[in-house]
């Protein structure tokens, strides 16, 4: 494990360095608080720090305060080294954000034991962060396909429409539906149906750019958002996405199945800034037309000819994500 030592006294620094290296730590040693802060701000910085109290440039408590002020960064476990150890000093040190303090000259065994406490705390933090990330993923993703779930993609779409309107760019919304999916389920069972949905998700993801969004809108319906997509290319890109489904059969436990997808599409340049629900209704209508035209095809939603300027509030307020 990496550890940072900050001490202006060369002798103490060397002693600490060697003691900690012997205990298996990967040591970075610096001679003042400013350098310590620089080290702790680096990528992959040490998460354990042993800081002398009195140092030039920036003292130990100063480093602690600066580190604690940062948010959204991994926790750094900081131990202050002090020579006095009066009650007032101890309180001041801990209040500055230090996790622990040690009196100089240190006892090697005590030092190692206290650093092990720090490692335990950091391990606990790792587990908490991991659990939080897992929960965040589960709250925004479809468990079967791992695509964004309906709520998440609607949020992203709303933001994207605001952004593209602000930046005067065009967003293309695609709603795709696997043709005759009910037949797959009825004929081969739900396990195969699930396999088809997973493969469909993979093909959709494989046919968009990294900054486009793909989400599972419902059952066998998928929503694709092409960000900053030039309207001139939108139909061709939509066609390519549709063909990614019909291109080659899908391998399932019950053999390979040839499937197709119907698509409805809408470009924000045709529609201006309108509520997401309204826009999705238009895409849905286009998708319905594709189904009615024999499936395995794309239908573009047609712009509504407006006779009067829109005065009503155009968009719902943005929902903030936590």
């Amino acid at each position: 494990m990496k550890i940072l030592i900050a001490d202006d006294d060369a002798l103490s620094r060397r002693l600490l360095e060697k003691t900690l290296e012997r205990a298996g730590y990967e040591v970075t040693a610096v001679e003042n608080g400013k350098q310590a802060l620089e080290q702790l701000q680096k990528l992959e910085a040490p998460r354990l720090a042993l800081l002398d109290w009195v140092m030039p440039e920036l003292d130990g408590p100063g480093v602690c305060r600066a580190v604690r002020k940062r948010s959204e960064q991994t926790y750094v476990y900081m131990v202050l080294l002090t020579s006095k150890g009066t009650k007032e000093e101890t309180v001041l040190g801990l209040e500055s954000g230090a996790d622990d303090y040690l009196t100089k000259p240190f006892n090697a065994e005590e030092l190692r034991a206290r650093l092990r406490v720090g490692e335990r705390i950091l391990l606990l933090e790792d587990r908490l962060v991991e659990a939080r990330e897992n929960m965040r993923f589960r709250a925004t993703h479809d468990p079967l396909t791992s695509l964004l779930n309906r709520g998440a993609i609607m949020d992203l779409l709303t933001r994207e429409l605001h952004r593209s309107h602000r930046e005067k760019k065009s967003t293309t919304i695609l709603l795709g539906d696997v043709d005759h999916f009910k037949r797959v389920n009825d004929t081969y069972g739900h396990v195969v149906g699930d396999e088809v949905l997973i493969e469909t998700a993979n093909r959709l993801l494989g046919s968009v750019r990294s900054y486009d969004f793909v989400g599972r809108y419902g059952g066998e319906e998928f929503l694709v958002v092409l960000n900053s997509c030039d309207p001139a290319f939108a139909p061709a890109r939509a066609e390519a996405i549709r063909k990614s489904i019909s291109n080659g059969p899908i391998q399932t436990a019950k053999g390979s199945l040839s499937l197709t997808m119907s698509l409805g599409a809408l470009m924000s340049s045709d529609w201006g800034l309108r509520p997401v629900e309204e826009l999705l209704h238009e895409v849905d209508t286009a998708l319905y037309k594709a189904k009615a035209s024999g499936r395995d095809c794309l239908r573009m939603a047609q712009p509504i000819a407006r006779t009067e300027p829109v005065t009503a509030p155009l968009l719902q307020p943005l929902r903030l994500q936590h």
Binding site: D9, A10, L11, R14, L15, K18, T19
Partner: peptide, 21 residues
């Protein structure tokens, strides 16, 4: 000696740093 875990080389190091500083 206890602090340096009986490491004579480290002890010499420390004494040299001290002699200079």
């Amino acid at each position: 000696l206890e602090r340096v875990d009986n490491d004579q080389e480290l002890l010499r190091d420390l004494l040299n740093i001290f002699k200079e500083d």
